[in-house]
Amino acid sequence: MATPAAAHRVHAGVTDVVISAATGELQISHRIYGHDLLEALGADVVDEEAWYASAEGLAATGRYAQTRFRIGEGDGRLLEPVYVGAELDGELLWIYFAAQAPADTSAFVVDNDLLADAFEDQVMMTNITIDSIVRTAMQGPGRREPVRLRFSTD
Rank of each mutant, 00 (worst) to 15 (best):
A2W: 10
T3A: 15
P4N: 06
P4C: 15
A6S: 11
A7N: 12
H8V: 12
V10G: 04
A12R: 04
V14F: 05
V17I: 11
V18A: 06
A21C: 02
A22D: 15
T23C: 11
T23K: 06
G24E: 10
L26G: 01
L26Q: 00
Q27N: 08
Q27I: 13
I28E: 00
S29I: 12
H30Y: 07
Y33S: 02
G34C: 03
H35W: 06
L38I: 14
L38M: 13
L38T: 05
E39V: 04
E39Y: 08
L41H: 09
L41Q: 13
G42H: 13
G42C: 14
D44G: 09
D44S: 06
E48R: 11
E49G: 11
E49D: 13
W51Y: 15
Y52S: 06
E56H: 09
G57P: 12
G57Q: 06
A59H: 15
A60G: 05
A60M: 05
G62K: 10
R63N: 10
R63C: 00
Y64I: 03
Q66K: 14
Q66N: 13
T67K: 07
T67H: 15
R68W: 01
F69T: 01
F69S: 02
R70N: 08
R70M: 15
I71Q: 01
E73V: 04
E73W: 03
G76E: 10
R77D: 12
R77K: 12
L78M: 10
L79N: 02
L79Y: 09
E80A: 15
E80H: 14
P81N: 05
P81L: 04
V82Y: 04
G85Y: 08
G85L: 09
A86F: 01
A86D: 11
A86S: 15
E87A: 12
E87H: 10
L88K: 14
D89V: 13
L93K: 02
L93R: 04
W94I: 11
W94H: 13
W94T: 04
I95S: 02
F97A: 02
A98I: 07
A98T: 13
A98P: 00
A101I: 03
P102C: 09
A103H: 04
D104V: 06
T105M: 07
V109N: 12
V109G: 09
V110M: 01
D111S: 15
N112F: 04
L115W: 06
D117V: 05
A118Q: 07
F119K: 07
E120M: 11
D121R: 11
V123P: 02
M125C: 12
T126F: 05
T126K: 02
I128Q: 01
T129E: 03
I130D: 00
D131N: 10
S132D: 15
S132A: 14
S132P: 04
V134L: 13
V134T: 14
R135V: 01
R135C: 07
R135H: 07
T136F: 05
A137T: 02
M138F: 13
Q139V: 11
Q139Y: 09
G140K: 01
G142N: 12
G142V: 05
R144I: 10
V147L: 04
V147Q: 08
V147M: 13
S152R: 05
